[in-house]
Design a protein around this nucleic acid. Sequence first.
DNA 1: GCAGAACCCCTCAAAATCATTCATAATGTG
DNA 2: CACATTATGAATGATTTTGAGGGGTTCTGC
Lengths: 274, 274
Amino acid sequence: MSKSLIPAQRRQKILEYLQFHQVASISGLAEMLGASEATIRRDLEWLEAEGIAERTHGGAVLTQRMPLEPPYARSAQAHPEEKHRIGLAAASLVRNGETIFLNSGTTTTQVMHHLLARQDLRDVTVITNNVTAALAAPSLGFEVVLLGGYFRPVATSVFGHFATAMLRQVSADRAFIGVDGITLKYGCTTPASGEAEIAQVMIERTHGSVIVVADHSKWGVVSNFEIASLESLDIFVTDMGLASEARSALEARSVHVLLAGERPGADGNGRGES
Amino acid sequence: MSKSLIPAQRRQKILEYLQFHQVASISGLAEMLGASEATIRRDLEWLEAEGIAERTHGGAVLTQRMPLEPPYARSAQAHPEEKHRIGLAAASLVRNGETIFLNSGTTTTQVMHHLLARQDLRDVTVITNNVTAALAAPSLGFEVVLLGGYFRPVATSVFGHFATAMLRQVSADRAFIGVDGITLKYGCTTPASGEAEIAQVMIERTHGSVIVVADHSKWGVVSNFEIASLESLDIFVTDMGLASEARSALEARSVHVLLAGERPGADGNGRGES
DNA sequence: GCAGAACCCCTCAAAATCATTCATAATGTG
DNA sequence: CACATTATGAATGATTTTGAGGGGTTCTGC
């Protein structure tokens, strides 16, 4: 099986761990990854040189100043498996002829991929500020409207006055909103104010269901800018890692929770890796 | 019975795997694909040359930037060498603090790459409908405004009412316009009406010089939709393959012709990455 | 402060991976 | 069919990574 990880894999796992726990100890990482402490130490040194983490005695903490040029941070998608499944489940909610909003983020990009994979969809229009999602579109079959505005390379998305002004000229049947944090008290939040504004206007201009997509690690997280309170949401698509109390609390607030992978179904998507 | 995959299939599988997992080990891929490690190593080398992946010890990681450019940019580049030089020459016309328009096309994308390579530029704003060019922008240093509108996958650009409406709210010091045909009689032309409209409005809203970039094979070509007559142009940047009579005729119409590579210089960049 | 423990930095040998070469097999071309 | 071109897999030293141990440094409880 997994004989031993290559350096890049190990560093990715460390980064994932850090993104979740903020802080990690050398001894803990060494045991978890099956490597010696000397190796972990070298990895942390590398992460520090990349500006991702900061060394401390006995371990490391995640760098605070997050949104400034993360050379590696972006490639390290946090929970690829979960996001994949969430995208699949979310995409299955769309019906023929609908117009949908899609904001930026790796999870919503997954939704786009699974939308494109659905052979049964016709006349679907996607309106998005997510450039990566737009790029995934084929030459035929889908109409994609890309919002205009200031380009944000780290997220490959656009934001700003032009984007929101353009949004106010359109509307959609559904909105798929990726968020960085979701709690009962503060609702959905994100660290970039421009992204928050886009998502707000998208929700405002959706006359059908508003669907938030996020893996379970986002539950209980509060970021700087509010996108929407829970009252604005209709469906929350996440993975099975969500605590059951969280689910009940959300349902009590009339947010329908959809756990991706709940019913495997006869999918046979084909890719079965370990 | 596919006892062994052809190289393209294998690379495709590696790419799929990488897009899902971000990182892959050579030993793992070799086992999964039933090929020797030497072969996998060669494949990764190839993927790296294509700008898709990045080699690391023991494997490779997916390139973080440039989500999916290669399919287009790489495949159908007609005169790469000339376009490279034209882009370089055109980019050298830009000065600090300017705002410039850039329309779609491989040649204008080259202009963007060479703009980014110029270390001396500060406070330059690029306004474009060229999504590929926008994607090339780094996190810091350049302000890129991406027009909104209907997304055209084959050209990775946007067009339509939204784009032109947005253009009419801005203006620029220079416009770099890529065209598909240029003649004395019909001026600049392109086969897509949407692109023609964008270019028209860009020219209309440029208060400095209008610069057309195109390799010499475009001379004498007339396409379906007119972008502009020669009277609207200030500079035509092309390569040394342009016939001298053409040059004289253009100069007589007060279009300044700039032949890229006139002063070859010590470039030596050769081929490969941009 | 001070002792003990944990941790860090450094060096070094073993192990893994890499680049390169070469012979063979597969594929394409006339 | 013969030939040129390309792709493949094994073998080689060179390079990188890894883990362990010695000795100095920082932390912790008192």
